[in-house]
Design a protein around this nucleic acid. Structure first.
Lengths: 211, 211
DNA sequence: TGCAAAAATGCACTTAGTGTAAATATGTGC
DNA sequence: GCACATATTTACACTAAGTGCATTTTTGCA
């Protein structure tokens, strides 16, 4: 009868739920790969994951949410890097370092694939917008934690939003230039874009916007 | 037989389509007000607008898109202000001036109402995310137009995204502080937040984020 | 092993969204 | 004003999304 909060040692039930959630998300990705965006149904995902259609909806509100969870899984790497930075470092410098994680092959590959697969259908997929938004909120939370309760909410939000905007911009430009090319040279370009974008942000976009 | 592009003098057909589109969007807003988010169907909107359900889908992909078009209608005011700024002005200064339009009662009232109505259900409504995204794309286009083809795409995107992030942040903070209070004092606060946020952006977020 | 809680499932139902063909409205030449 | 071509709306049918509820299966624990 634990009146205290559930222990951080995950119970078997917790583990199973996480595993099921992952299985569903992975099934969605598999179908995205094999059939292309919009060419499979929730029922297909459920079958692929070995659960019932109803169970799918117990875990996700829809296909988009399932795919967004995949993006979240990797964008969370960025957040983790941010948290690992020394607390007395300027936030923008931490952000720059954390965004480098985007250009890590292990992170970039799934994100790039996911975005290229979902972008094929429309301008910018809903699931991406939500994934970036989710990441923004987490950066705000992490920055607030670092700066203490006295942190100015407006400052936090504007800064976090701008940082993510730089990440989005760098990824978007890289994407248009190189497709989903994940070669070391291509990733170096991506990394350079991230550095440039954050550098522009840190300088207040003072330089003229012409090459 | 006009092989040339359709004349800018709108034909009757064009006008009717615009009117129908508006009627549908307005009907959606009316239902959002009277029944609350999520408590009405596409069929309800179509009936309210006096068209068939199928016609609704000829104009919008869903309820979200219809509501987003309302947001777009007012966010376009921001873009218009941006375009009216002198071409030799620094882009950030133009952006600051344009964002002031958000705090104009005629613009703020519908936006604030729309966001408060849609926010009631979830963190940040899909339609809002899409509306901001749409606005960002337009700012990019306007800035590119101003700066010429030599404009650096990364610079443009990162800057436009950051500007919009500041607008989002100012509106979000104002919202949490004042609800949908549209009194002159409240709007003055909102305006101040916009100025502050863009000021932070222009300074590269150098000041510490504590009050 | 047996029992209570949690999770998964099956089923029924409403609504979203789309293809198609028929009906209606609009623009144009005469 | 009339007739014809084209654009738009509509009705209908269909697949799939999403949800509520009762039931079954699984899991944790004594």
């Amino acid at each position: 009868m634990p009146v205290t909060a559930p222990a951080n040692t995950a119970s078997r039930r917790e583990l199973n739920k996480v595993a099921t959630r992952r299985a569903i998300a992975d099934a969605a990705l598999a179908l995205l790969r094999s059939k292309g965006a919009g060419n499979f149904t929730v029922e297909d995902i459920a079958a692929e994951a070995g659960v019932s259609r109803r169970t799918f909806f117990n875990y996700f509100t829809g296909v988009d949410a399932a795919l967004a969870s995949l993006a979240d899984r990797f964008l969370d790497n960025v957040l983790e890097q941010f948290r690992l930075r020394p607390a007395d470092e300027p936030v923008l410098e931490s952000a720059r370092a954390a965004l480098m994680e985007l250009a890590d092959p292990m992170t970039a590959a799934p994100i790039a694939e996911l975005f290229s697969l979902t972008n094929s259908s429309q301008g910018l997929g809903r699931c991406e917008l939500e994934a970036w938004e989710h990441c923004t909120e987490q950066i705000i939370a992490a920055a607030r934690e670092r700066l203490g309760e006295a942190a100015d909410e407006l400052h936090l939000r504007a800064m976090a939003g701008s940082i993510i905007a730089c990440g989005k911009a760098a990824m978007g430009v890289w994407f248009e230039e190189r497709g989903a090319d994940l070669s070391p040279e291509s990733l170096a370009v991506f990394r350079q874009h991230l550095v440039t974008a954050v550098g522009l942000l840190a300088s207040g976009f003072n330089a003229p916007a012409t090459a």
